[in-house]
Write a protein that binds this DNA or RNA. Structure first.
Length: 588
RNA sequence: GCGCCCUUAGCUCAGAUGGAUAGAGCAGCAGCCUUCUAAGCUGCUGGUCGCUGGUUCGAGUCCAGCAGGGCGCGCCA
């Protein structure tokens, strides 16, 4: 049978239902659910089978429930089945069923929880995708952690996952960045120009004034001396330096982003450059495909409702008919200077990802791009060779001492990822970022993230693992080479032990549900609950010597308890691996 | 004005495909305790699930409307 006990029980319920009332339609059988009961008075599990099929069967829920109960008598897994409430059937399994999961877990190791829900579907998860114009911020950190954990989760659930980073290196902002770096370059050389005087010479003004470009300017000065500057360290003709400075700066920025991601433990498979994409002609080919479908036209958009921008005037543009695919208005593909909009390039990019084989595209974006979702999905649907889902990450407010943190040495107004890592470390960043649904705003409390209390999920879960490892180290001598996957487990009878085993058994279903919902935060909450079950059992051992894991007078019982501890450690590691957090062996 | 997201205990938040008396941590209250190296532990208290309608045997969950908060709204990316 499957390693998912709940799925196994469900199969038996459906079989019993078929026996009780043959011929129920598949869509009714599909609604049969087996869930973990909240209230112990309701048994361990409950099924809604009788209620969901009552109407189709033309029978009262209570009658069906009674028939189900009769049909389940003598079942190998189910010790107790009882009709209850409006038509539930409450179930209690033989304790041996839960115990039997322990060797399964120990043999599977961290692969426990792997499932086939993804059916090998090729999915491309794109995340971070920062403009390479400045340091990574907390906002990027949330997207990075969310995307990375989601990719891990999907891989564990049987999807064929590619992790991707899109480099937006083709827009106007890259030119602006080059100008800003050029200013730091002149500064490094000792120019007498003031920043304001320089800014006056920049087309569109000096946009990036953050100190993070100081090092770039200095590096450029070391590499090229004053050869890129005009006479007297003034601004030379951009034609003579702009491309070189741009490429140099871009390389430096990307190196910085890579370093930050590396520190965060994020390692993506593919880095795609917008410039390279443009050069490849993929964008134009993709737009041509849309044009072939009669979805590209010259037209004039209605003015937006409500407050108009001051300079709004009707203008004919090249538009994509995104309204045909659920968007609110059609969207421009060309700027007035004839170059592509970002949207046009992004259409080409998504087509490229699909062309590489992905049937499912998942983009992890900041909430400020929420207005962009419909048009991008419209474009992907119009092309018809993949499906696009978007996971939006809401903003993160960083708190310290209960006060918002806004200042950063490097970026000026944003808390950088590097600052965050310095402050609390990789594991706390990754875990804490996953303690909220991605589409809910979150407050990241720096003090809480490093506190050693139950309030801090990172600590609480790591501590549980460290305790497991501590017990296992102490037990090593007594094991005497025994295979924990092969020891007698009959001594595991206490309700606290059963509760822990039930939690361990629900890990595969948790993984699958989280993957299908694209909600990696559920893993964090599962681990927190699991840690709670384990700590509770540990604490029981203080009062009740019979519940201590290591018992001098009971070797067989000790082996069973140690197997339970080992399985707990395995599941914690399996969960932390999804989150990209390293388990600790001991607390310091 | 339009679109998307959010609103659950005093606070911070969980609640997969609709299921029974809505959960956890913190705070508060009451006991206990100095540990199988380890965060002290156990229990209790605390809720009109923003509001109003609707669908359903059954709604925190689905639908409609309203209120409050956030984000976005033609050639920025």
């Amino acid at each position: 049978m499957t390693t998912d006990i709940l799925a196994g029980v469900r199969a038996r319920i459906v079989a019993a239902l078929d026996a009780a009332h043959p011929g129920l339609p598949p869509e009714v059988r599909a609604r049969v659910d087996v869930s973990v009961a909240r209230d112990p008075a309701h048994g361990e599990l409950a099924t809604n089978a009788a209620m969901v099929s009552a109407k189709a069967a033309g029978r009262k829920p209570a009658d069906l429930a009674a028939a189900l109960v009769a049909g389940l008598a003598g079942d190998a897994l189910i010790a107790l089945a009882a009709p209850a409430g409006p038509g539930f059937v409450n179930l209690t399994l033989h304790p041996a069923v839960w115990r039997a999961q322990l060797p399964t877990i120990l043999r599977a190791g961290e692969a426990y929880g792997d499932n086939a829900a993804g059916q090998g579907v090729r999915v491309n998860v794109e995340y971070v995708s920062a403009n390479p114009t400045g340091p990574m911020t907390v906002a990027h950190a949330r997207g990075a952690v969310t995307g990375d954990a989601l990719a891990n989760l999907l891989a564990k659930s049987g999807f064929a996952v590619t992790k991707e980073f899109y480099i937006n290196d083709a827009g106007n902002q890259v030119q602006a960045l080059a100008w800003a770096a050029y200013w730091r370059y002149l500064e490094a050389l000792g120019t007498t120009l003031t920043e304001d005087a320089f800014a006056a010479a920049v087309p569109g003004g000096l946009q990036y004034r953050g100190a993070y470009l100081v090092d770039v300017g200095a590096a450029l000065a070391r590499a090229r001396g004053d050869t890129l500057a005009g006479p007297g360290l003034t601004v030379a003709d951009p034609a003579s330096w702009l491309d070189e400075v741009r490429d140099f700066t871009m390389a430096e920025m990307l190196a910085s982003i890579h370093a930050d991601l590396d520190q965060l433990g994020v390692h993506q498979d593919v880095f795609s450059s917008e410039r390279a994409l443009l050069a490849s002609g993929e964008v134009e080919r993709t737009i041509a495909r849309l044009a072939d479908k009669q979805l590209v036209y010259r037209g004039t958009l209605e003015p937006p409702k409500g407050k108009l921008p001051d300079d709004w005037e009707p203008r004919e543009q090249t538009l994509f008919r995104s309204t045909a695919f659920g968007d609110d208005v059609d969207r421009p593909l060309k700027k007035s200077d004839g170059s592509n909009t970002y949207f046009a390039n992004d259409i080409g990019y998504h087509a490229a990802k699909a062309a590489r084989g992905a049937a499912l595209l998942i983009d992890v974006w900041g909430a400020d791009h929420g207005g962009y979702v419909k048009r991008m999905q419209a474009a992907v649907n119009a092309l018809g060779d993949a499906r696009l889902e978007v996971v939006l990450c809401q903003i993160v407010h960083v708190l310290k001492g209960g006060q918002p943190v806004r200042m950063s040495k490097r970026a000026g107004t944003y808390v950088t990822l590097a600052d965050l890592l310095d402050e609390v470390g990789r594991d706390a960043v990754r875990f804490t970022m996953l303690t909220r649904k991605s589409d809910a705003q979150m407050e990241f409390d720096l003090d809480a993230a490093v506190s050693q209390t139950r309030e801090n999920p990172v600590f609480y879960v790591q501590y549980a693992h460290a305790r497991c490892r501590s017990v296992l180290r102490a037990a090593a001598a007594r094991l005497d080479g025994a295979d924990l996957a092969d020891v007698g487990l009959d001594s595991l009878v206490h309700e606290t032990e059963l509760a822990l085993m039930r939690r361990l058994a629900s890990w595969p279903r948790t993984v699958e549900a989280a993957a299908l919902a694209r909600e990696p935060h559920r893993i964090a909450f599962f681990l927190y609950d699991l840690a709670g079950d384990f700590h509770t059992l540990w604490n029981r051992g203080r009062d009740d010597a019979a519940l201590r894991f290591l018992r001098d007078d009971d070797l067989a019982g000790t082996l069973a308890s140690v197997a339970l501890v080992a399985a707990t450690a395995v599941v914690i590691r399996s969960g932390l691996a999804v989150m990209g957090v390293d388990p600790v062996e001991e607390m310091r």
